[in-house]
Computed example of a mutant assay.
Amino acid sequence: MTEFVLVAGAWLGAWAWDEVAGELRGAGYGVHPLTLSGLAEKRGVPAGQQTHVQDIVDEVERLDLRDVVLVGHSYSGVPAGQAAERIGDRLARVVFVDANVPVDGETFLSGWPSDPVRAAIEKHDGFWPPLTADDCAGQDLTDDQIARLLRDATPHPGATLTEPAVLTRSLAELPTTYIKCLLDGEEPLDPVRELLGSERWELVRMDTGHWPMLSRPRELAEILHQSAGREGVRVHRWT
């Protein structure tokens, strides 16, 4: 049986996947939403980026999961991409949801104007403070969804953003689906654009914002279902 391991992005915990997880379980899959160290119910646990990589690897090994579809959203694409190569033949596919991807030797903050984030981390004792309502505007979220996001988000451990990724081979070798959420920008980041040239990578666009597990959970669950191989993924390759 295909087993989904779902990892949400910065500030979020396993709770963010509640609706998607319900849809996937209803379709007969094993589903394992994961809260990373230092977030949500694990707030207070010290964490760097490699801690988060190990969180994912440990979950897969602890549950002895096989045929794993590993899903990383936003920031969590960085640890998920590293974990994907470390779980070896347990992996069936990686799905990046509007995510950053790891680049060997680079940090999450590499390649974009990150001075405000670094300043915020320094000002807030090593943590990236959670979202504001303004950050959620224009992202296809209802007022209730925004309220939940603001209520349940927790400060994100800053060290996870400033430690470099460690890869031993190219992500282009991994079977991958990349989901681009168009309300958060129509073009993927440069490292993603390069990887989409691989025959093993597929691109799916969603006409929603950066948090599709909240704004479009059924549609996202359907794309994940397709990525598991029961049906062909509707692919729109970036050109």
Rank of each mutant, 00 (worst) to 15 (best):
R169E: 13
R169A: 15
A137Q: 15
A159C: 04
L161N: 06
V95Y: 10
R86P: 09
I146Q: 14
A137H: 06
E163L: 00
I87C: 08
D115P: 00
A84P: 13
R151E: 15
E122L: 13
R118F: 00
V97F: 05
G105C: 09
R86Y: 10
G126E: 10
D152C: 03
E122R: 13
A137K: 14
A133R: 14
T142S: 15
E85H: 10
A120W: 08
D140T: 00
Q139M: 15
S110K: 01
T107Y: 10
F127K: 07
I121S: 06
F108Q: 04
A84G: 15
A137Y: 00
E106C: 02
V103P: 04
V101G: 03
N100L: 11
G105V: 08
D143V: 12
G126I: 05
D98K: 03
A165S: 15
D89H: 15
P157R: 06
T162E: 14
L109M: 08
D98S: 07
T132C: 09
D135A: 13
L171E: 04
L109R: 06
I146G: 04
F108V: 10
D152H: 11
S170E: 14
P116Q: 02
V103C: 12
R93H: 07
D89L: 12
V94S: 02
D135E: 09
A159R: 15
D140N: 13
T142A: 06
G111I: 02
F108D: 00
G138E: 07
R93G: 11
T154R: 05
G126M: 02
W112S: 04
V94Q: 01
R151N: 11
V117Y: 14
A147M: 00
G158E: 07
F96C: 12
W128H: 12
G158I: 03
F96Q: 08
L141W: 08
R86D: 09
R93E: 12
N100C: 01
W128C: 01
D98R: 04
D140S: 13
P157E: 11
T107C: 10
V94I: 13
Q139G: 04
T168Y: 01
P116A: 10
V103D: 03
A99L: 01
A165G: 11
T162C: 02
D143L: 03
